[in-house]
């Protein structure tokens, strides 16, 4: 009886870990970076919307040639990767080192799938002659998704460092793990907006 109670308490404990009010996930300098990055991307998003309204037909026509399905799969891939990172962070806090390594490993597998999918999305487009020079929509599309892809690749490197820290340090640096995690979630967050703007909206 007491055994099950203990496991319940433990479970609740793991789930409620991040709920300490006023706790600060990750390093403050990373939040500085994230907020600035969100503002920079935000400015680009609004510029896209403004230029789009000047020649909506061009944008709509090029957008129709996009593969909405691939966009949705990309979104789900990044969301899933983000979930594993979030669960992995909780596992590190709960000192479940083996679990956390497995979870971060899965996160990296899904994260690495994203660039592969992007290449399979870009290459046929470029082969069909839909290059950035064709029109403003495609220029925005390649520049913005390219910039985002750069963030994804950087995020994979950061996740690698996080895993190395968990694996090699006697006591994993929770702050550092959180810092890598919030960066990865930001990459996910930006894609959610990109998906709506470049694939879905009319």
């Amino acid at each position: 009886m007491s055994n099950t109670l203990e496991s319940v308490v433990h479970k609740v404990d793991v789930r409620e870990q991040p709920q300490v009010v006023g706790a600060f996930p990750g390093q403050p300098s990373m939040w500085f970076f994230i907020i600035g990055d969100l503002l920079i991307f935000g400015a680009y998003f609004i510029a896209y919307m403004a230029y789009r309204s000047q020649e909506p037909d061009v944008f709509l026509q090029s957008q129709q040639a996009m593969n909405q399905g691939v966009g949705a799969i990309n979104t789900i891939v990044l969301l899933t990767s983000s979930l594993f990172v979030a669960l992995g962070t909780e596992a590190v806090r709960a000192q479940k080192i083996r679990d956390s390594l497995r979870l971060f490993g899965l996160a990296m597998v899904f994260g690495a799938l994203f660039p592969v999918l992007k290449i399979f999305e870009w290459l046929p487009k470029i082969e069909a002659g839909h290059t950035p020079g064709e029109n403003l929509y495609l220029m925005f599309y390649y520049v913005m998704t390219g910039l985002h892809l750069f963030h994804v690749l950087l995020g994979l490197v950061i996740l690698g460092f996080v895993m190395r820290n968990i694996k090699t340090a006697a006591n994993p640096d929770v702050r550092f793990v959180e810092t890598g995690a919030i960066y990865w979630h930001m990459v996910d967050l930006l894609w959610l907006v990109l998906f709506a703007l470049f694939y879905l909206m009319r």
């Binding site: 991040p18 709920q19 300490v20 009010v21 006023g22 706790a23 600060f24 996930p25 983000s82 979930l83 990172v85 979030a86 959180e178 995690a181 919030i182 979630h185 930001m186 996910d188 967050l189 959610l192 907006v193 998906f195 709506a196």
Partner: peptide, 20 residues
């Protein structure tokens, strides 16, 4: 819908709901 998703990612994944 994107905004709702972004809100959830910020609140739960980035753990901002417990932040200052």
């Amino acid at each position: 819908m994107a905004s709702v998703k972004a809100q959830l990612v910020i609140q739960y994944f980035m753990e901002v709901r417990s932040a200052p």
